[in-house]
Design a binder for these strands. Structure first.
Length: 877
RNA sequence: GGGCGCAUAGCUCAGCGGGAGAGCACUCGCCUUACAAGCGAGGGGUCGCAGGUUCGAACCCUGCUGCGCCCA
């Protein structure tokens, strides 16, 4: 701890911790001093995290706050440990979301993007970004995010765009990007294709309508939830083994309303158990039907346009698909073709993850990534341990997905994004253009109008942000990144895609060594937060009211691996209280001369309490270290909370008061111990609650900043088990006296004369002053008359506490307390004896377990004897 | 339909073979010279149900019920 200068701890801290007043200024100072700026040329070991880039249109929500708190804690600790830390911030351009925002803005002016034209529209989006985009970046500062602002990146920036074009070209040349006509997920509102994972399925109420196709003995009934698509039917399919329909296979039926004749085909993929066992086949509007169509060489008939309006058949032409549905059912009913209707019929329906519009499967020409070889490599990187997923249970989910990944549709019919670098020539030429190449010019050449999926560019994030495809110093230094931190819901978006591209672009080197997946934020009842539920908690609100440290501590403390966390106002208040407690305790210690200026004396000059708290501190250092390494944020916060509040504040500070009152060398030694404990404790807490610890620590030590202070190492000295046992004994003695006092209705502040008998035998000879202070007992003076007493069994002996209550003793309360203790002891004795009386137990159980039960039995028996004697001696209540 | 996970104190969750725990909430007493955003003491749980394994099960196994999530 070389940065600690001789310093007289400041005792003039304000009486209250007021985060709002200091957080902003502290943060800006950290940034100005360059603490968060990574130095690629340093010889320290690197530690890198790239932020999962938030959406440029977004603002900070609790999920970000959690994610960022964890990343900030990890990087702050590593920085203190002497790593060259790079935590790289930035945003993605969020193609659909951003385009939606700007189009909505235009709509208010009564214009569409088509009125502006492509170029002007894109310019308009840039303008929007400059003015409104990236509000989240400012909010990150309020959280305290120690990111390297000098390396901030945006997916649409020049460098990252170059990376996109480079990898597109490379994949194209390797045959891993191709163009094909298939059924894709189409959002009729966004009017673009979506990838599979941008579709969210929900159980919705619809209708199941059974329609009779054909007539007479050739009639066949099909069931559908999407009657409107029947206009595009080009076959009816049945299972080849289905006896009911065997005679119809190969024949044709008339498709109602249209008069078209369509074949009945046999296909093994038809489920004979579903509905009537016969299904309509609409190859242009259903992925399964498309497959059937391919197998049977059926035509595909598109009957809807890109807005979801019907494009065929007079009376229905121009109708929206949801208007067309009842209209077509009505028309069929009029012809007597509706055999059955089930309504509501609950079934799974896909929705656009951006705007919630029901997705329309649509046949169209799109660009695809052939994922198989890439996904294989992504799976292998985890299988062979180059990348570790935490918690490990989630690795299975990763494998399941990666090992069965479908080709990825990457083209989007949008204007905002990276335009596909492919040019089509007048004679059907297709040319993919690399970043340093000139696109073909001349009559008839045109560029593909589509842009790439945003995930295509953010999949490059772990290396494009470091300068790839150039061989930059940053890339050499900071890749692979150390850990990716994100919610498990993003596993397929982030982790999988970054793995695919990282391994491909970086010659098999994984984009991250670790993936840490945290849970999702929920409300106090464990329900998902959503605007419609109205249970959203705004982190900025808590930031205002409780401070950044309280928000961070709440989130970190709730972060149990693999499980979601419930949040409620009281949690934040509790964290705020913790910060206040730390503040008050530190201030008190400093007012009493806590110092880091003087070395802590040798063990033999220290009291039991000193040794105990130093040992506990050392154990806590080890615990916190191990928990940090395992991403066990909730547990490490609990360990720190417990040490701070229950051990340091509730016990050591109280014991220190006694030692300081003693004066002289004892007081000086105590001040040194207080200084040491506080110094180390503040360092341990700093990654999670950086603000309050910074103020306290600089006041205590005069050091420059905790941000760049050294992380504590374990002292490693063997713990003093004797001191610990004696301190625990003193705690029990004090608690028992307090309990007696409470039962007897004595006010906490009321001092009572008492005689303590048997302290030495019970190893408490050195603790009399402490016991008297903490239990508020005065020394017996002249005329002392013991009117009540209690006994406390401790290792080594029993302490008898005789008190002069100078008034009536509440015998009823006393009897009640003793009876309760007796009942507990009797239960304990019975339990132990039952075990020991069972020869199978004494034979088979390990010797140490048997010995422990014997000890417990003996202790219980002794307690029972003592308690019975006291009860008998008690006057009648 | 396939897969995964969870059921422990009023609430949110730890514990995962040998004495049922924490935070918050609750009760009682306190402005005891760091802290009422606090201090001291206390109450509260057949650990979802039914079987099984074991000397011993909240913990391991099987089944059931209820809830949640992912994928199709």
């Amino acid at each position: 701890m070389t940065e600690t200068l001789p310093h007289q701890a400041r005792a003039d801290l304000p009486p209250q911790w007021n985060p709002a007043e200091v957080e902003g200024e502290l943060y800006e100072r950290w940034v100005e001093r360059g603490y968060f700026t990574a130095d690629a040329s340093s010889d320290k070991p690197p530690y890198t995290i790239v932020i999962p880039p938030p959406n440029v249109t977004g603002t900070l929500h609790m999920g970000h706050a959690l994610d960022h708190t964890l990343m900030d804690s990890l990087t702050r600790r590593r920085r203190m440990q002497g790593y060259e830390v790079l935590w790289l911030p930035g945003m993605d351009h969020a193609g659909i979301a951003t385009q939606n925002v700007v189009e909505r803005e235009l709509a208010k002016e009564g214009r569409s993007r088509h009125d502006l034209g492509r170029e002007a529209f894109v310019e308009r989006v840039w303008d929007w970004k400059a003015e409104y985009g990236g509000r989240i970046l400012g909010q990150m500062r309020r959280l305290g995010d120690g990111v390297d602002w000098s390396r901030e990146r945006f997916t649409m920036d020049e460098g990252l765009s170059r990376a996109v074009q480079t990898i597109f070209k490379r994949l194209f040349d390797d045959g891993l990007i191709y163009r094909a006509e298939r059924i894709i997920n189409w959002c009729p509102r966004c009017r673009t294709a979506l990838s599979d994972i941008e579709v969210e399925h929900s159980e919705d109420e619809g209708e199941l309508v059974s329609i009779r196709y054909g007539d007479g003995e050739n009639a066949i009934v099909v069931a559908t939830t999407r009657a409107e698509t029947m206009l595009g039917d080009t076959a009816v399919a049945v299972h080849p083994d289905d006896e009911r329909y065997r005679h119809l296979v190969g024949t044709e039926v008339e498709l109602p309303l249209t008069g078209r004749r369509i074949p009945v085909v046999a296909d093994a993929h038809v489920d004979p158990e579903f509905g009537t066992g016969a299904v309509k086949v609409t190859p242009a509007h259903d992925p399964n039907d498309f497959e059937i169509g391919q197998r049977h060489d059926l035509p595909s008939l598109t009957v809807m346009d890109e807005r979801g309006n019907i494009t065929v058949h007079g009376p229905f032409e121009g109708l929206d698909r949801f208007e067309a549905r009842p209209a077509i059912v009505a028309a069929l009913r009029q012809q007597g073709r509706i055999v059955a209707e089930k309504r509501p019929y609950v079934h799974s329906v896909g929705h656009c993850s951006r705007c919630d519009t029901v997705v329309e499967p649509r046949l169209s020409m799109q660009w695809w990534v052939k994922v198989e070889p890439l996904a294989k490599a992504a799976g292998d990187a985890v299988r062979d341990g180059r990348t570790t997923i935490h918690p490990p249970e989630l690795a299975k989910r990763y494998f399941d997905w990666v090992d069965d990944m479908h080709d990825w549709c990457i083209s989007r019919q949008l204007w905002w994004g990276h335009r596909i670098p492919v040019w089509y020539g007048p004679d059907g030429e297709v040319v993919c253009v690399g970043p340093d190449e000139q696109p073909p010019t001349g009559e008839g050449w045109r560029q593909d109008p589509d842009v790439l999926d945003t995930w295509f560019s953010s999949g490059l994030w772990p290396f494009s942000t470091l300068g790839w495809p150039d061989r930059t110093e940053d890339l050499a230094r900071f890749y692979p990144t150390s850990v990716l931190v994100t919610g498990y819901d993003i596993l397929f978006f982030w982790v999988a895609r970054m793995m695919l591209f990282g391994l491909y672009a970086m010659d098999g080197r994984q984009p991250f060594d670790n993936v840490f997946l945290h849970g999702l934020i929920r409300d106090a009842q464990g329900k998902k937060m959503s605007k419609s539920r109205g249970n959203v908690i705004d982190p900025l609100d808590w930031l205002d009211r409780y401070g950044a440290d309280a928000l961070r501590f709440t989130l970190a403390r709730g972060a149990n691996p693999g499980s979601d966390m419930a949040l409620a106002e009281e949690w934040a208040a509790g964290s705020r209280n913790f910060c206040t407690k730390l503040w008050n305790a530190s201030r008190f210690a400093m007012m009493n001369g806590a110092t880091v200026e003087r070395a802590v004396p040798e063990r033999d000059r220290l009291t039991d309490a000193d040794r105990w708290i130093l040992d506990r501190l050392d154990a806590t250092v080890g615990e916190v270290d191990a928990l940090f390494e395992g991403f066990q944020f909730a547990k490490l916060c609990d360990a720190l909370y417990h040490f701070t509040w229950d051990e340091f504040c509730d016990w050591y500070l109280e014991l220190a008061k006694v030692q300081i009152a003693e004066g002289g060398e004892r007081a000086e030694a105590t001040r040194a111990v207080l200084g040491r404990v506080l110094d180390v404790l503040l360092r341990l807490l700093h990654p999670v609650i950086p603000f309050v610890t910074e103020v306290l620590w600089t006041a205590l030590t005069g050091g420059e900043s905790l941000v760049v202070a050294e992380w504590p190492a374990r002292a490693g000295a063997p713990a003093d088990a004797d001191a610990e046992r004696r301190v625990i004994g003193a705690q029990k003695l004090i608690t028992e006296i307090r309990r007696f006092r409470s039962d007897q209705g004595l006010k906490p502040g009321q001092r009572v004369a008492a005689r303590l008998v048997g302290l030495a035998e019970a190893e408490q000879g050195g603790h009399e002053a402490a016991v008297r202070s903490l239990a508020r007992l005065d020394a017996p003076a002249d005329g002392f008359t013991a009117s009540a007493s209690l006994e406390v069994g401790l290792p080594g002996g029993t302490v008898v506490v005789e008190l002069d209550l100078s008034g009536a003793v509440d015998v009823v309360a006393e009897r009640k307390r003793l009876a309760k203790d007796l009942a507990a002891a009797e239960k304990e004795l019975a339990g132990c004896e039952a075990k020991l009386g069972n020869p199978k137990f004494t034979d088979k159980a390990p010797a140490d377990v048997v010995a422990k039960i014997r000890d417990r039995r003996d202790a219980a028996a002794a307690d029972i004897d003592r308690l019975r004697a006291r009860l008998a001696a008690l006057p009648e209540g």
